[in-house]
Simulated scan of single mutants.
Amino acid sequence: MSHLDLDLRALDIFVTVVEAGGMTAASQQKGITQSAVSQAVGGLEKKMNVKLMDRAVRPPALTPAGRTLFDRAKSLLDTARETSFMVRAHQQRSLPRLNVGMVDSFGITVGPHLVKELMDEALEWSVWSGLTKLHVKRLFTREVDVVITEGSVETEERIISHRLLREPFVLALPVGYTKKIESLKELSEDIPLVRYSSRSLTGINIETHLRRLGIEARRRFEFDTADATLAMVAVGIGWAITTPLCLLQAKTHLPSIRCEPLPGPAFSRSLMLATRRHELESLQKMISKKSCEILEQRCLPEISRFAPWVIEKMRVGEKVV
């Protein structure tokens, strides 16, 4: 047997088995049968004449040889993918397909301009939005190639990330609510809080902030998107904690919304751009540069029309990792 006789596809399946926690999960993630997963792992063991997994325990555990292969295989697969991208780049100027995950507020305000600017970089574009907690997970499972997500990105050797925007949370009130805002506690006792879903990072961050302040607003209204949340505020149902970009996303409702600084301690969110290291790094730089240009040249001027006081508190760019 040749010492170079390693099947990259089998290695990829083996790594997925370890990361997913079992062959059933790996088969679902890869979209292949559990039998095909088992055969791939068994084929590696046969070729190298070693036992990679201890199947006597549940879930199967790595043997010392399996741990060595897993650690080395990740680097080997990254190198193979990078090589593939580089070789194809000599054949064609565009990627065959680019899968992007975007937080809704970015996807609606920046996304269309970003795709228009970079549309020739890929023959096909697929953009996913929705709840951001799934975006980075999809980056690891290779369902997406690039993500623009909310919050910090876990430090991981296979991921490279940049911060595109840091923006403060602000107060959104019905335009007809003219009382002076002294505290969030008094406000929550006066009219209902319209919440972002607790399944979203925005909702989680807001709830954490309210708990720190000892505020227990009655739970009556909760929505998944900024547009839906702020539509409720616009018709006078209650108030919300949101961000300037979310308000821009829901700009059709702005004539009926009063935007004010958040009373009490300030807090903010970051929008991060992340890709797998050694893959698409030149495209990542292009996306980062164009995104920052769009934020500065298009979004900030629009935000300044309804909340001029917030512009100095917003930060575009800044490399994090």
Rank of each mutant, 00 (worst) to 15 (best):
T132R: 02
T149R: 07
T109V: 11
A73W: 11
F140I: 00
K137W: 04
K137I: 00
V87R: 14
R58I: 01
V136H: 04
R72K: 13
V147E: 12
R55T: 07
R55S: 05
M53E: 07
N99A: 13
W125M: 03
F70T: 01
F140P: 00
D71H: 10
L114V: 04
L118W: 04
L123Q: 12
F140G: 01
Q92W: 09
K133G: 01
D54R: 09
G130T: 00
P112H: 09
P60M: 04
M86T: 08
L118F: 04
R97H: 14
T141H: 04
M86F: 09
E82R: 12
V115A: 06
V147P: 07
L123F: 09
V110G: 09
M86K: 15
M53S: 03
L98S: 11
L114T: 04
V100C: 05
D145W: 05
V127L: 15
I148Q: 06
T132Q: 08
H90N: 11
L98G: 12
S105W: 02
A65G: 02
H135C: 02
T79W: 07
M119Q: 15
L69G: 07
D71R: 12
I148W: 03
T63H: 10
E82A: 15
V87E: 14
T68S: 12
F106G: 06
H135S: 05
T79E: 14
G66I: 02
M119C: 07
Q92S: 15
L123G: 03
R72C: 07
W128Y: 08
V144S: 04
P64T: 03
L95W: 08
R55C: 03
A61I: 01
S126K: 13
T109S: 15
S126W: 05
G101P: 01
L98P: 11
P60V: 00
V100A: 07
T149I: 03
M53G: 01
V144Y: 08
V87A: 13
T149Q: 07
F85E: 15
K137C: 01
V57Q: 12
S75Q: 13
R88L: 10
G107Q: 04
M119I: 03
M53Q: 14
H135P: 00
T149Y: 08
F70R: 02
V57Y: 07
M86Y: 08
L95T: 00
L98F: 12
L134P: 00
T109A: 14
S129D: 01
P59Y: 10
T149C: 10
A80Y: 15
R88W: 06
F106V: 13
K137A: 12
D120R: 11
L118R: 06
W125V: 00
R55E: 05
N99H: 14
G111W: 05
W128S: 05
M102S: 01
G107T: 02
I148G: 03
H90A: 11
M86I: 06
P96D: 13
H135R: 02
K116G: 10
D54S: 10
D71P: 01
D78E: 12
D78C: 05
R58W: 06
A80W: 12
P60G: 05
V115C: 02
L139Y: 06
T149E: 08
L134A: 14
